[in-house]
């Protein structure tokens, strides 16, 4: 198990390889469909994302007396951000993306070029992952609706697996190719 601690850096993520199990401690910013479209359209980010990690997640957030509490926070399917992700990596300098299901060739190329990795969180594991969120620092673009807003989350030992690294390797590409080959034999 590898620990990745805040502040994150390109140097640290360049060391990670496909198959590494990583525990992330520090800060994550949620961002999913609406946020990626918003940034892709050239709108400025309401928060500096340089060397940050974006989490593809639309959490369940309850408003409490002293702020917010995240009560469920698993990843959403990342491939929907495939048209935008490379650009967000290039323009905003993020060093990682957490999601599920993996991403495509454009993102893999951007990981290599701009120094970022794709972390896979376990889809559907909303409680295990919400437990690792210690507090909510802020919320941006709340007008997009709660699941689509940017939530600034503080996390401790958030469990993920590297499935796309900054050296051109993708577990998703490998599994897709091998399962297609297996299917040919089984048909």
């Amino acid at each position: 198990m590898i620990e990745l601690n805040y502040p994150f850096s390109q140097e640290a993520v360049r060391k990670l390889k496909v198959g590494d199990m990583v525990l992330i401690t520090g800060k994550l910013f949620t961002g999913r469909d609406a946020v990626h479209k918003y940034l892709h359209e050239g709108n400025p980010s309401p928060v500096n994302l340089k060397n940050q990690i974006i989490y593809h997640c639309g959490p369940v957030v309850m408003k409490e007396k002293n702020g917010y509490k995240v009560t469920a926070a698993g990843p959403t399917t990342s491939i929907r951000e495939e048209p935008y992700q490379w650009q967000v990596m290039r323009d905003h300098g993020i060093v990682g993306v957490i999601g599920k299901g993996g991403m495509g060739a454009k993102t893999l190329e951007a990981c290599k070029e701009y120094g970022a990795v794709y972390f896979h969180a376990i889809g559907g594991a909303a409680q295990v992952l919400a437990e690792k969120i210690t507090s909510v620092s802020n919320v941006y673009l709340e007008e997009l609706g709660s699941p689509e807003a940017i939530w600034e989350l503080n996390v401790e030992k958030f469990p993920v697996v590297v499935t796309m690294d900054s050296h051109g390797n993708s577990l998703h590409k490998d599994v897709e190719e091998s399962s297609k080959a297996n299917l040919k034999d089984l048909l």
Partner: peptide, 9 residues
């Protein structure tokens, strides 16, 4: 915890 299994309900 009586909380959603998955955040996408």
């Amino acid at each position: 915890k009586s909380q959603p299994l998955c955040q996408d309900t």
